[in-house]
C-alpha cells in the first residue's frame, strides 16, 4: 500500500494527465451539450446580452471582410440582373420571331447564329442548321425585321450565310409605294445603295424597299430597308438611293431560312435565253465586221 501511495505521489502529474485526457475523450464521446438544456440556454442568453452591449465596438477586420463579401455579392447580383435583363430581351426577340413565323406564309426554318464575320469585304454568318434541316445553298435568310442574305455554303448541321452587306450580293428590289424597281447592293459603307432608278420620279424619305419579283434569288416582298437619302450625281441618268437595312447585323442572333429555292425552270429559261443572245451576238460579230466610210463614221449596219 505504501508503495502504491509512493507510486501515486511520484507520478501524480502523469496519473492526473491520463485521468483528465481520458475524461476529456469520454466527454467528447458521450457528452452532448444539448443535455444541459435550460442551463445552456441561460448561459447563451446571458452571453447574448453581453454581446449586444459590446456590439457598438467596431471590428475593422470583420468590417473589411464583410465589405469584401458584400462587394462580391454585389458583383454576383449585378451579373444576375444583367443575365435576367438579357433573358428578358431574348424572350421579347423570340416572341416576336415566333409570332412572325406563325403569320409568315413562307416556309421557314428557325436557326441560331453561331458565328459572325461582319465588317470585312465579304461579311457572313454561320448558322446552326444544315442539310439535315432541309437547308440548301441559295436559300434566302431573313429575320422578322427583313432580309439577311443567302445561304452560300452548307454542311450537315451548319450553313454559311452571305449577308447583304457583301459585295457579291445584288438584290433585285422594289420601292414599296412607288413601285420602282432597282438593284440593291452594298458598296463599302454602313448604308446599302439602290441603283437604276429613273430620276424623273420623286421618292420620299423613309419609303420601304422590298425584294422584287424580278429576283431569281430571293422570294418577293421581303423587306430590305428604308430610304434614308440619295446620292446627287448630275452626270448620271439614274438616281442612286441610300438604303438603311432593317436588320442590325451586329446584334443578329436568330434568323429564319426560307426553305424554298427559286424556280429552276425559270432560272433555266432565263439562262438559256441569255446564252442564246450571247451566241447570236458572237455569230453576228464574226459574220459582219463594221466598215468605215470616207468621213471616218462607223457603220454598224451597212
Amino acid at each position: 500500500m505504501q508503495r502504491l501511495l509512493q507510486f501515486i505521489e511520484d507520478f501524480k502529474q502523469y496519473i492526473a494527465l491520463c485521468f483528465f485526457v481520458v475524461l476529456s475523450f469520454s466527454l467528447m464521446a458521450f457528452g452532448d451539450l444539448s443535455q444541459f438544456g435550460g442551463l445552456r440556454s441561460v448561459v447563451v442568453s446571458t452571453i447574448g446580452v453581453f454581446q449586444d452591449a459590446f456590439s457598438f465596438i467596431p471590428n475593422p477586420v470583420a468590417l473589411k471582410s464583410e465589405n469584401s463579401s458584400l462587394r462580391d455579392l454585389n458583383a454576383q447580383l449585378s451579373f444576375e440582373v444583367q443575365k435576367s435583363r438579357q433573358s428578358s430581351i431574348e424572350n421579347d426577340k423570340l416572341r416576336s420571331l415566333l409570332q412572325f413565323k406563325s403569320i409568315s406564309k413562307l416556309p421557314l426554318v428557325p436557326a441560331e447564329v453561331v458565328g459572325k464575320t461582319i465588317g470585312s469585304i465579304r461579311s457572313y454568318i454561320t448558322i446552326n442548321r444544315g442539310t439535315s434541316s432541309g437547308i440548301a445553298q441559295g436559300m434566302a435568310v431573313m429575320t422578322d425585321r427583313g432580309l439577311v442574305g443567302v445561304v452560300a455554303s452548307v454542311s450537315t448541321n451548319f450553313a454559311i450565310v452571305s449577308i447583304i452587306k457583301n459585295r457579291d450580293i445584288r438584290v433585285a428590289a422594289r420601292l414599296e409605294s412607288s413601285r420602282l424597281d432597282g438593284v440593291v447592293y452594298w458598296e463599302d459603307d454602313e448604308i446599302l445603295v439602290m441603283k437604276n432608278l429613273p430620276k424623273t420620279y420623286s421618292i420620299q424619305l423613309g419609303e420601304i424597299v422590298v425584294t422584287s419579283e424580278f429576283s431569281t434569288k430571293f422570294p418577293p416582298n421581303i423587306p430590305i430597308g428604308k430610304v434614308v437619302g440619295n446620292y446627287n450625281d448630275p452626270n448620271s441618268l439614274f438616281a442612286t438611293l441610300k438604303i438603311q437595312s432593317f436588320v442590325q447585323f451586329e446584334t443578329l442572333e436568330q434568323v429564319f431560312v426560307v426553305t424554298t429555292l427559286p424556280n429552276p425552270e425559270r432560272i433555266y429559261l432565263e439562262e438559256r435565253y441569255q446564252q442564246e443572245l450571247a451566241a447570236k451576238a458572237k455569230q453576228k460579230k464574226s459574220v459582219k465586221k463594221p466598215t468605215k466610210d470616207s468621213t471616218g463614221t462607223v457603220n454598224e449596219n451597212p
Binding site: 483528465f20 485526457v21 475524461l23 476529456s24 469520454s26 467528447m28 452532448d32 451539450l33
Partner: peptide, 22 residues
Amino acid sequence: GLLVDFLSYEGVLGVHALVNTL
C-alpha cells in the same frame, strides 16, 4: 477548457478541456 467548452457554440464537449490540459 471545460468552461470554454461549455460557453462555446461548437457543441463538442471536452475538446478545449483536452487541449488546455495538455
